[in-house]
Simulated assay, not measured.
Amino acid sequence: MTDRRTELADNLARVEERISKACSAAGRPREDVTLIVVTKTYPASDVRLLAGLGVRHVAENKDQEAAPKAAECADLPLTWHFVGQLQTNKVRSVASYADFVHSVDRARLVTALSAAAVKAGRTLDCLIQVALDAESGERGERGGVAPDGVTELADALAAAEGVRPAGLMTVAPLVGTYAGRPGAAFGRLMEISTGLRAAHPAANMVSAGMSADLDDAVAAGATHVRVGSAVLGVRPRLG
């Protein structure tokens, strides 16, 4: 366990250095960017070690893994982010532990999250997942709403009980105009964010960038980066 703690500490230090350098290059204070560590496929014991190393934001993308892990770590001072595609039949469970949901992409999900949050007596901060590849007529497999659907979803979140629009999330597209151009993709997300904040000033989160492209995301103006393998190690291939 000591070796694993040292490994995680060293990885965190390297990621921290990347974020700090990217912030400095962009003329941004380091505190502008929040690191979310994506702990999917890794055990609750790693979450405990990360918490001991000062990590306060962790993310999962599958409820069947996230729910028991969040319960096991309920005593820790953590903020939980759900970042995966979310089916409505998982909403009640997710609403019981997630503080932020990054993957809102349809009106039906807004309705389901609202009902579940009210029943749980909680308020969920919701990010709208934007599918930037939709602008070039492509649709990847990562979910999200086309940019022209963001305003409608934000209005629905603002009008519903138990949820509120907190900002935007995207994953750099693998197809279409922005394929291989994460900097351009994240720049476009910032443009959409500016429009969103005009109508919903509190929706100022921009969740973008992962292990491979967090530097581009920080340069573009992201407020949150979601980093998994750079902290926890390369995940084994399944199947």
Rank of each mutant, 00 (worst) to 15 (best):
Asp3Ala: 10
Ala9Cys: 09
Asn11Tyr: 08
Ala13Glu: 11
Ile19His: 01
Glu31Gln: 13
Val33Ala: 05
Thr41Leu: 11
Thr41Lys: 14
Ala44Gln: 08
Ser45Trp: 04
Asp46Ala: 10
Val47Tyr: 01
Ala51Asn: 07
His57Tyr: 14
Lys62His: 11
Asp63Arg: 01
Glu65Cys: 11
Ala67Glu: 14
Pro68Val: 06
Glu72Arg: 12
Thr79Met: 11
Val83His: 02
Gln85Asp: 02
Gln85Trp: 05
Leu86Ser: 00
Gln87Asn: 05
Asp99Gly: 06
Val101Ile: 13
Val104Lys: 00
Val104Ala: 02
Val104Pro: 00
Leu109Ala: 01
Val110Ala: 01
Val110Arg: 00
Ala112His: 00
Ala116Gly: 03
Arg122Phe: 00
Cys126Pro: 02
Ala134Lys: 08
Ser136Cys: 09
Thr151Trp: 04
Glu152Cys: 10
Leu157His: 01
Arg164Lys: 09
Val171Met: 14
Gly183Ala: 13
Ala185Arg: 02
Gly187Asp: 09
Thr194Ala: 08
Thr194Ile: 09
Asn204Lys: 15
Val206Ile: 13
Val206His: 04
Ser207Gln: 11
Gly209Asp: 08
Asp213Phe: 13
Thr223Gly: 13
Arg226Leu: 15
Arg226His: 06
Val234Ser: 11
Pro236Val: 14
Leu238Asn: 12
Leu238Glu: 08
